Simulated assay, not measured.
Amino acid sequence: MSESQMNDSTFSRLFIIMILAMTALTILLVVLASFASSDVNARLDEQYELENTQSVAERIAPVGTFSADSVSAPIAVATAPKTAEQVYASCAACHDSGTLEAPIVGDVAGWAPRIAKGIETLYNNAINGINNMPAKGGNGALSDDEVKAAVDYMVSKSK
């Protein structure tokens, strides 16, 4: 065997040994990094959960609190009575179109039999409801006097 052939075979063996050593070193480093990062990942997950829980708690926390000690007496809110025309605005949804068999304001023939029963009957029906019409036309915030004023308004337009 010549010297150049021996150097080539020695080089080849050394080259293969170096490749195997580097591969083994790489695998060792990957395994060590995996062990090291598993602890870091667990701590990062715990931190994320903690921050996420605090963030959600802050977003859904009440903006204020109520204490019964801070309230001495109920505050009465005074509202001006509505005019008949203002009250009729909520009645108009049905009484302008005849929805649910409501008599149309201005239809003398449609209102005549109702007017014949008397104004007190009309008031009672409007306040308590009748057939398809709910009490106070579905607007429970109206006073009885406001409903009566609206009835008077519709009757005056339908005679």
Rank of each mutant, 00 (worst) to 15 (best):
D152S: 03
D145N: 11
A68R: 11
V155E: 01
P74H: 08
V87G: 01
K136I: 02
I130V: 15
V105G: 02
A68P: 00
P103T: 06
L25P: 00
L28P: 00
V71Q: 10
N131Q: 10
A141N: 15
A24M: 09
A102F: 05
L20S: 13
W111R: 02
D96W: 01
G137A: 07
A109K: 10
A135Y: 02
T65G: 11
F66T: 10
T121L: 07
H95D: 07
V87K: 01
A141S: 15
R59M: 14
I127E: 04
Q86S: 10
M154P: 00
N128D: 00
D39W: 08
S72N: 12
M6F: 11
A126R: 00
A76G: 09
R114M: 04
N7A: 13
D144S: 01
L122Q: 05
C94Y: 05
V87S: 03
P113G: 04
L25M: 10
D145A: 15
N139L: 10
D145C: 03
I27M: 05
D145W: 02
V30M: 02
A36Q: 10
L142V: 04
S4Y: 08
Q54L: 15
M154T: 09
S158L: 05
S70R: 05
T53I: 10
A102I: 04
T26D: 01
F11E: 05
T99R: 13
F66M: 13
G129W: 00
I19N: 05
G129K: 02
L14E: 13
I115M: 05
W111E: 01
C91R: 00
S90M: 13
F15S: 14
C94H: 06
I119P: 00
S34E: 07
Q5I: 09
T53V: 12
K159W: 02
V108R: 13
G118W: 03
S143L: 08
S70T: 12
L20V: 11
N124C: 00
K82Y: 14
N7S: 09
N132H: 07
V105R: 06
G98E: 06
D96Q: 14
L50S: 13
N125K: 04
Y153L: 05
E49R: 12
A141Y: 10
K148G: 01
Y48C: 02
A149K: 02
K157S: 06
S34W: 09
L142P: 00
A21Y: 03
S4V: 12
R59L: 15
A21N: 01
G64K: 10
A109N: 13
N125Q: 09
C94K: 07
P113H: 04
S158A: 08
A21C: 05
N7L: 14
S2M: 07
D145M: 03
Y88H: 10
A61T: 09
I119A: 01
N125R: 06
S70E: 12
L14A: 12
I19G: 06
T10Y: 07
G140E: 05
V71D: 03
S90N: 14
G137N: 02
D107I: 03
Q5A: 11
V40A: 12
A149T: 02
D145L: 09
V87H: 01
E101C: 07
A92H: 03
M6N: 06
N124R: 09
L14S: 10
S158R: 03
M6C: 04
A126S: 12
R13T: 09
V71N: 05
D107C: 02
R43H: 08
S4R: 11
P134T: 04
